[in-house]
Computed example of a mutant assay.
Amino acid sequence: MKWEDLRRSKNVQDRRGQSGGSGRNRGGSRSSMGGGLLNLLFLIPGKGKWVVLAVILFSVLGGGALGGFGDLLGGNNMNQPTNEIQVNNEAQQSETGVTDDEFNFVSSVLASTEDFWNESFSTENMTYDEPGMVIYEGGTATSGCGFGSSQAGPFYCPADANVYIDLSFWRDLSQQYGAPGDFAMAYVVAHEVGHHIQNEIGVMDEYNEVRQTLSETEANELNVRLELQADYFAGVWAKYAQEEGLLESGDINEALQAAFAVGDDTIQERATGRVVPDSFTHGSAEQRQAWFMRGFEYGDFEHGDTFNTYLENE
């Protein structure tokens, strides 16, 4: 990815070498739902206006919990009152070897997503509240989502609207999970920002409310659909990056390999030697790749209804 000349985001906090911290204010429910059906109200940009689309989930399939690496690239869905933080974008050398180039790269990717989503929202006379990003080592406190650990991988906290990343994950992604390349990490950042988009347009609030009415297996399948939509939004941003001339040969393949690496079936096969589809919570490798590519193809909101749409190649 051609990122060196991009601006750096001002919404990045450097907690490397620190322990603990808190997040900025975020909270409040946007709408309500009942009856066990998913009535996700989210804004779909049309030609010259925003259209409110009620997405009804008529049926959900079984699923199950999957810990460890299976929680990577997920949305922490707690939504509680939070405290203020001071934003600091000054990179420092990490004692664990995280370089300033890595820090600056994710800051530049975040800035690119800010430019894209600000433009998209502004075009429709909407305001985009940019997420923060916290770079940490080992573990760090959040405001409303508990204690973040590098063992859980990158995550988004809706309560404080921050993306949390331990950059050692970048090396793990390349060396342990076979997904090298800078655009593999760009996909990770864009996916977490995708959860922020869900938070901005009301999907996350609806998800949290409806999830409480479902059985465990139904809730897990609902979570799969939430994750796939974040993959779709990552693909939407990737299309913008291509149009801006930021992509290099092989970048999309790097993103697809990362999506493959964090598929539930890939993780289960690596961990146990067998695959249990009913236990999926984030989506199979094929699903994650398919929805990323769908976002990359269409570059819009209209085709991102993962809750009712099941792709043929999933």
Results as ranks from 00 to 15, higher is better:
Met1Phe: 10
Glu4Asp: 15
Asp5Thr: 14
Leu6Lys: 10
Leu6Ala: 09
Asn11Glu: 13
Asp14Glu: 09
Arg15Gly: 08
Gln18Pro: 07
Gly21Glu: 04
Ser22Thr: 15
Ser22Glu: 08
Gly23Val: 04
Gly27Cys: 05
Ser29His: 08
Ser29Lys: 06
Arg30Val: 14
Leu40Gln: 12
Leu40Gly: 12
Leu41Ala: 13
Phe42Thr: 07
Phe42Pro: 02
Ile44Cys: 08
Pro45Ala: 14
Gly48Thr: 12
Lys49Tyr: 14
Ile56Gly: 05
Ile56Arg: 13
Leu66Cys: 01
Phe69Asn: 13
Gly70Asp: 00
Leu73Thr: 03
Gly75Gln: 11
Asn76Phe: 09
Asn77Tyr: 14
Met78Asn: 12
Met78Lys: 06
Asn79His: 09
Asn79Trp: 15
Glu84Trp: 09
Gln86Thr: 15
Val87Glu: 12
Asn88Phe: 05
Glu90Pro: 03
Ser94Gln: 06
Ser94Asp: 14
Glu95Phe: 06
Thr99Asn: 09
Thr99Arg: 08
Phe103His: 09
Phe105Thr: 04
Val106Thr: 15
Leu110Ala: 03
Thr113Ser: 10
Glu114Arg: 07
Trp117His: 13
Glu119Val: 04
Asn125Val: 07
Asp129Tyr: 11
Gly132Ala: 05
Met133His: 05
Met133Gln: 06
Gly139Ser: 15
Gly139Gln: 15
Thr140Phe: 09
Ala141Gly: 15
Ala141Val: 14
Gly146Glu: 12
Gln151Asn: 12
Gly153Val: 10
Gly153Ser: 05
Tyr156Lys: 02
Asp160His: 15
Leu167Asn: 02
Phe169Val: 03
Gly178Ser: 12
Pro180Glu: 04
Gly181Met: 09
Gly181His: 04
Ala184His: 04
Tyr187Cys: 03
Val188Leu: 04
Val193Ile: 10
Val193Gly: 00
His195Ile: 07
His196Phe: 02
Ile197Ser: 03
Asn199Ser: 07
Glu200Tyr: 04
Tyr207Glu: 01
Glu209Ser: 07
Leu214Ile: 08
Ser215Met: 00
Glu216Phe: 06
Glu216Cys: 00
Ala219Arg: 12
Gln229Tyr: 01
Phe233Leu: 01
Ala234Ser: 13
Glu243Ser: 14
Glu243Tyr: 04
Glu243Met: 11
Glu244Tyr: 01
Glu248Pro: 04
Ile252Thr: 10
Ala255Cys: 07
Gln257Cys: 05
Ala258Trp: 10
Val262Glu: 00
Val262Pro: 04
Asp264Met: 01
Asp264Asn: 02
Thr266Asp: 00
Ile267Cys: 02
Glu269Val: 00
Ala271Trp: 13
Thr272His: 00
Val275Thr: 00
Phe280Tyr: 11
Thr281Glu: 05
Arg288His: 07
Phe292His: 03
Phe296Ser: 05
Phe301Glu: 03
His303Phe: 04
Asp305Leu: 02
Thr309Glu: 09
Glu312Asp: 10
